[in-house]
Simulated scan of single mutants.
Amino acid sequence: MVSKMNKIKRMARGAVVFVALAAMEVIVRAIIRKRRPRITYGPMHERDRIRFDYLNQKIWQSDVLCKNMLRFERAAIFCLCGILRDHNLLEDSPHLSVEQQLAKFLHTIGHNLRNRVISAIFCRSYGTTSIYFRKALHAIGELRNDYIRPPSLETPKKIAGNH
């Protein structure tokens, strides 16, 4: 009986020692992690400048270019951006303004392009392009009640009188 009790006590002490060692290991790893230098990313302003230059040269330079690329005039796009901002449907992110989000969306649907093509043009990942496309699509859809009038079900008199 005594040997069984001693055996249980030894096992309990071993379990306590094991738990203490495991806790110490966790603490040591946390300390090492804190001492490790953080990963810093390179400056993103170069990529942002390239995107900004593309928008300036290919889209915002003139109304003709803007209409060819986005199927809208510049004034209409900036007005739409203001509406989307006022309704809190789109907001600027650290590296993508509402104008850029809307330009990517309009360029995609205006030329029936794939997200991969838009990703290459605007130097973004496919995931980022897809996320912002869906955001812009949702934002435009939310304006439907305010700016899209359903068709009338009545036949105009001019057509009704014409046999």
Rank of each mutant, 00 (worst) to 15 (best):
S125P: 07
P94A: 06
R144V: 04
Y54W: 13
Q100H: 09
P156Y: 02
L89N: 03
A139G: 04
E142Y: 12
R74L: 03
N56L: 06
I118Q: 01
P37Q: 08
I121V: 13
I59L: 05
Y54R: 14
Q101N: 04
H111D: 00
F105R: 01
V98T: 07
R114E: 12
G42W: 11
I118N: 02
I31E: 01
G14S: 08
D92V: 03
H163E: 14
W60M: 03
G42I: 12
C79I: 06
V19H: 07
M11I: 10
L65N: 09
P150H: 12
L21D: 02
F105D: 02
A30I: 05
N6Y: 14
M44Q: 11
N112T: 05
V64A: 14
G42M: 12
I83E: 06
A20C: 10
A23T: 05
L70F: 05
I32A: 13
I83L: 09
E73T: 07
C66W: 00
N145D: 15
I109L: 08
F122V: 02
L89K: 09
D146G: 10
R71W: 09
G82R: 14
R29K: 15
V28F: 09
N56M: 09
K157Q: 14
V16F: 12
A23H: 06
S119G: 15
I121L: 07
D63T: 04
Y41M: 12
N162C: 12
M24W: 12
H87R: 15
R114G: 15
Q61W: 05
S97Y: 01
K7Y: 14
D53V: 03
Q100R: 10
I148M: 09
K135W: 04
M44W: 06
F78G: 00
T129E: 06
I77T: 00
A30Y: 10
E46W: 12
V28Y: 09
F72D: 06
R10N: 13
G127K: 07
C66S: 11
N145R: 10
L106K: 00
R35M: 11
P151G: 03
L90W: 06
E142Q: 14
I77Q: 01
A120D: 14
M44I: 11
F105S: 05
Q100E: 08
K7I: 03
N115A: 04
K9A: 14
C79D: 02
G127C: 08
C81Y: 06
I31D: 01
L102M: 12
D63Q: 04
L102F: 04
A12Y: 15
A75W: 07
R74M: 03
E91D: 03
K4Y: 10
S119F: 00
I83G: 04
E25P: 04
K9Q: 14
R35H: 11
S119M: 01
A120T: 12
A76Y: 10
E99F: 09
C123R: 13
W60H: 07
T108N: 02
K58E: 00
L70D: 02
K135R: 15
I50E: 03
K67W: 00
I121C: 04
E142A: 12
C79G: 05
R36L: 08
G110D: 03
M11R: 15
I118Y: 02
A120N: 10
N56V: 01
G110I: 05
N162H: 13
A76E: 11
F133G: 02
L65M: 08
A103D: 02
M11E: 15
I109H: 06
L80C: 14
L80A: 13
